[in-house]
Design a binder for these strands. Structure first.
Lengths: 327, 327
DNA sequence: CTGAAAGCGCTTACAG
DNA sequence: CTGAAAGCGCTTACAG
């Protein structure tokens, strides 16, 4: 392995000036610069990041803490983070927390020992003080830790209004809203949006809390549909719940979208594969991840961050679980 | 930050014996051991992994190279790898390669500079020589690089036989096999299994090559179904293709499973959410990942590896796209 | 069984 | 503008 020493020797300068040149820190004469460049080239020298880390107490590792990569929402997020990380020369460490504060803390601690550059955190049960005191750059998704930590999230409320209106415009008269877990910020924002849209309509509706879980959602919807067969529209706070609703509906003999229209939220790939295809309020998950990564890297590199709160617009995707609009 | 020096001072020994004790390398008297233990405890000392890496040229980072975490097959694999990595004190770096050899090489190079402990590689277009010469422990999924590199994969051929037989047992008389891309080992093994099972049946069949992509599969199946309306069974080499087939079938007015039965391959979560639920040959992806990680760590820690080839059994999951067995 | 010392490959005041 | 030297926090022959 060729080291900075080899380069210095070949270039006829000291390791200090090689280092200065490589890091663009401090003055280096044009002459020296040229000699170093040539030596680096010739020796195919590449800086040892571990040795550098030991000195600078910084690495180019980014920690991505999320509940579970297995949840269909996260792969795309991870992909986006990794793509932009790669662009900027960072490497991403994957951390599944299972929403367990102990696991989160554990990751934070072990990665800080490795001089991790920063964290992107997606979690519902964030141990706020632990993050607030982590003393390392952080960007949070879907949750505010404190005013100093930038947050990126979807325009959940707006999205819920769009989703609700899609159902209203298509003639639904009795809407079931599948509300997500109450400890989730995004779920609550969606709830607010739904309430705002539905209440200005004077139509019948009901709200049922429902985890973002397929089988549970199916079961809950099956029950509610039995209790109230006049329900003709379902707005689910997540695509997984919507898929459960769709299954319950078809098992209950309801025709979708003729008897019952369904709108989901998330825009997961699976929605397209259902029959009929799921109409949904799609989040731009990739964009969220990309923004989070960029903002984090700016923080790491001490560049100015223009804002602390990033809201990514949401988009209504019309597929087969809704009818064409009534004129 | 407390260092090994602090511990040495407090324990009244040299840093060398502290290091020896901590690494269980070389003799340390009971007395010294006790003093060091106490000092470590009292100072809450934790070894700096970066400094260690610089010396040993080893880290506890594991690189997970996969085509795209966004492909529904991989999140569970990643999860498994991370779970066992965590257990053994390793951290996993996520690398999306897009099947691009340049990206793979790039990752290998940059991570080797960080003294990565080893790689788990899932890829179709592996640049074999590059891996073979990587000079770092590797475990491959679904592909053999060379005899020295352990491989783990599903029992693909067996699985394909099971899947085909499931269709045969349920009265299919004209089966369409959706063969996966020809450059994929697993896809070819599945093809072999299908051929073996179907040829011993003397029934009608056809094979169509079809990428593991939803929309493409849907389109292909729609076309084939039109050409030959007597097809009454489809065996797809992947669940995504099966989902495409299901959609094409329902759009073509076929009743599933009455007119047409469908079996997929993979066991992805989405299969359950379809209507009807997808009958499929499920891989134990979590187990594959867990085995890969364990075998890799054994290699890293220079423990004996009992075998070089691990085949994980596959399981038939019967759901709604197949009928009950005819007696 | 133990410690002094060199070394891993870099960075960074500091003096010139 | 540049180099000698100390230092980042550990590990590891080597001598005793």
């Amino acid at each position: 392995m060729t080291t900075i020493k080899d380069v210095a020797k070949k270039a006829g300068v000291s390791v200090a000036t090689v280092s200065r040149f490589l890091n663009d820190s401090g003055y280096v004469s044009a002459e020296a610069a040229k000699a170093v460049t040539a030596a680096v080239e010739e020796l195919k020298y590449e800086l040892n990041p571990v040795a550098r880390s030991l000195n600078t107490k910084k690495s180019n590792l980014i920690g991505l803490i999320l509940p579970d990569i297995t949840n269909p929402f996260f792969p795309e997020l991870a992909r986006a983070v990794e793509d932009v990380a790669l662009t900027y020369g960072y490497t991403v460490v994957l951390c599944n927390s299972d929403e367990n504060p102990e696991k989160e803390k554990n990751y934070i601690e072990t990665l800080k020992k490795k001089y991790i550059a920063g964290f992107i955190v997606t979690s519902n049960q964030l141990d706020a003080p632990h993050y607030a005191n982590a003393n390392v750059p952080i960007v949070a998704l879907d949750r505010t830790i404190n005013e100093k930590i930038p947050t990126v999230s979807s325009n959940n409320k707006e999205g819920a209004i769009m989703g609700t209106n899609a159902l209203l415009k298509r003639g639904c008269r009795n809407i079931l809203f599948l509300r997500g877990p109450e400890e989730l910020n995004p779920a609550n924002d969606r709830y607010e949006g739904f309430m705002e849209a539905i209440q200005s309509s004077n139509l019948q509706y009901q709200v049922v809390t429902c985890p973002f879980h397929f089988a549970d959602s199916q079961e809950i919807v099956a029950r509610v549909l039995k209790e109230d067969p006049t329900i003709d529209g379902i707005f689910a706070s997540s695509d997984v719940s919507a898929a459960g609703a769709l299954k319950a509906a078809s098992l209950a003999g309801k025709r979708v979208p003729e008897d019952l229209q369904i709108v989901g939220f998330d825009g997961v790939a699976m929605g397209e594969m259902l029959s009929p295809g799921l109409t949904t309020v799609a989040q731009d998950v990739y964009k969220m991840g990309a923004i989070a990564a960029r903002v984090l890297i700016k923080q790491i590199e001490n560049k100015k961050i223009d804002q602390r709160f990033y809201e990514v617009p949401v988009k209504l995707i019309i597929r087969g679980t809704t009818r064409s609009v009534e004129e």
